[in-house]
Amino acid sequence: MNWISNYVRPTINSLFSRREVPENLWTKCGECGTMLFHRELADNQNVCTNCNHHMAITPRDRFTALFDSGIFTEVKVPTPIDDPLKFRDQKKYVDRMKASQKSTGEKEAMLVAEGEIFRTPIVAAAQDFSFMGGSMSMYVGNAIIAAAERAVELGRPLVLFSAAGGARMQEGILSLMQMPRTTIAVDMLKEAGLPYIVVLTHPTTGGVTASYAMLGDVHIAEPNALICFAGPRVIEQTIREKLPEGFQRAEYLLDHGMLDRVTPRGKQKEELAQIIRMLMGMDAVVAADLPAPAEQPAKAE
């Protein structure tokens, strides 16, 4: 982070991008302003190569990077009925849904998959912040229950990547009821003696934090992720004072005892496999994802 990277490079890059480069090939880092080439950014799982800023990543891209060779199978999630309250604000809820489905290419705000990480079988669920702010809907509740049930069925741990502004207001009380529902899902795993690991990503707030996101056996967060119940603006309005630097960010929560670890996206796969294998009584990860060594014959005395 010097004058060259902070000023000169962005300036040069912006000149280029203005002139000849099609817009969608370059992404500007929201933190340091560096222009990042799409392939380079994707290879780094949407983490800025210059300042390590963790940008949003879709569940599908995350799973592709997470699972061995990018292979995973989706777990089917039961579909609830559409728009139970016939909710309408400035727009109809059904229209908002359609717009989100079109822009993300996904059905809803959570994706559930099964696969292996360093040959460790897991079930994973990831919330999609780009889909209506990742908000907790009946579908999201169903997805978490489906994930837990599948994990119990297969005897695998569940890894959940949270990202949400909170409950989905357009589903009113039915959204709020996903707090107890998802808590039951977590209990299913506990009763089955299976690990439940939460990776909290930016942002995880509101009713999501106050239910399944804070009930993990292990809490890992991405660097600088905002994690809270009430957002900073609401708190500033309530207490009428400026909040300290870094308030409600992952590192702050780590300091206050709410998290186990803050781990950059690129290191998460390894760390998850390591923790899960220890909890599940499996052998250590074989380095470099090589084939497992053949069984050693028992040594003669």
């Binding site: 804070m214 609401v234 708190i235």
Partner: peptide, 15 residues
């Protein structure tokens, strides 16, 4: 929604 409440884990307590 207060500073101390957040620092002491409002979400976790509710969950």
């Amino acid at each position: 929604p207060g500073k101390g409440a957040e620092e002491r884990g409002q979400s976790e307590a509710i969950a």
